[in-house]
């Protein structure tokens, strides 16, 4: 554990809590991609199956359980509790175009051809693209509420901090996880365009982020 990793995890947690509270308090999931949230729930489910097979630390276990619970609670809010506010027609990204290649790649490129390893690899690949339905939705509607952009900002910051974490681990421990690092870099790139808009539009005070 290093400072980048810890801050990264905290940003990840903050992002998830921001989204959950936004939906809970406003009783609306307008502008939120339910598909991205289902993908994230799938990411956590397939990655954290090791909760049943190996114990790493209390921190690790608690965080995994919290992420799982919040991910499913968010999906519940979007698809059941506040379903009437869900913009399903704007959330039109075809997730099968992500799931099929990601599933195929996880069978081809993994560390071991074992069920848990393939599922872990699948979760890593899937996480790197899971935000695309959300970004697609913002591009399609041309705007996002500022609270949604804060959510995306913390999610992107979490990714950037994980990159710093890997640089740190490489130099201090000689650690290099090719699958996680390559996917992590790809994932972070997806946020770059968003980061630019966030700093130039949202932080300059306009309530919503509108695309040029």
């Amino acid at each position: 554990m290093n400072i980048f990793r810890l801050l990264g995890d905290m940003c990840h947690l903050v992002a998830i809590i921001i989204l959950f509270l936004k939906i809970w308090r406003s009783k609306s999931c307008a502008g939120i991609s339910g598909k991205s949230q289902v993908l994230f729930a799938l990411v956590f489910t397939t990655r954290y199956l090791d909760l049943f097979t190996s114990f790493i630390s209390v921190y690790n276990t608690v965080m995994k359980v919290v992420f799982l619970v919040l991910a499913y609670a968010t999906v519940y809010l979007i698809y059941l509790r506040f379903r009437s506010t869900y913009n399903s027609e704007s959330d039109s990204f075809r997730v099968e175009f992500l799931l099929v290649p990601v599933a195929g790649l996880s069978f081809l490129e993994n560390y071991a051809f074992a069920p848990l390893e393939i599922l872990w690899t699948f979760s890593i690949y899937l996480e790197s693209v899971a935000i695309l339905p959300q970004l697609f939705m913002i591009t399609k509607t041309g705007e996002a509420e500022s609270i949604t952009t804060h959510y995306l900002f913390f999610l992107g910051l979490y990714r950037a901090l994980y990159l710093a974490n890997w640089v740190w681990r490489y130099h201090t421990e000689g650690f290099f996880d090719q699958i996680a690092v390559v996917s992590g870099v790809v994932q972070t790139i997806f946020y770059c365009d968003f980061f630019y808009l966030y700093f130039t539009k949202v932080l300059r005070g306009s309530g919503k982020m509108t695309l040029p």
Binding site: H12, S54, I56, N60, F67, Y111, A112, F175
Partner: peptide, 10 residues
């Protein structure tokens, strides 16, 4: 050999 290094990350 299953590489488990990254599995300690979230």
């Amino acid at each position: 050999q299953v590489k488990v290094d990254a599995h300690d990350e979230l």
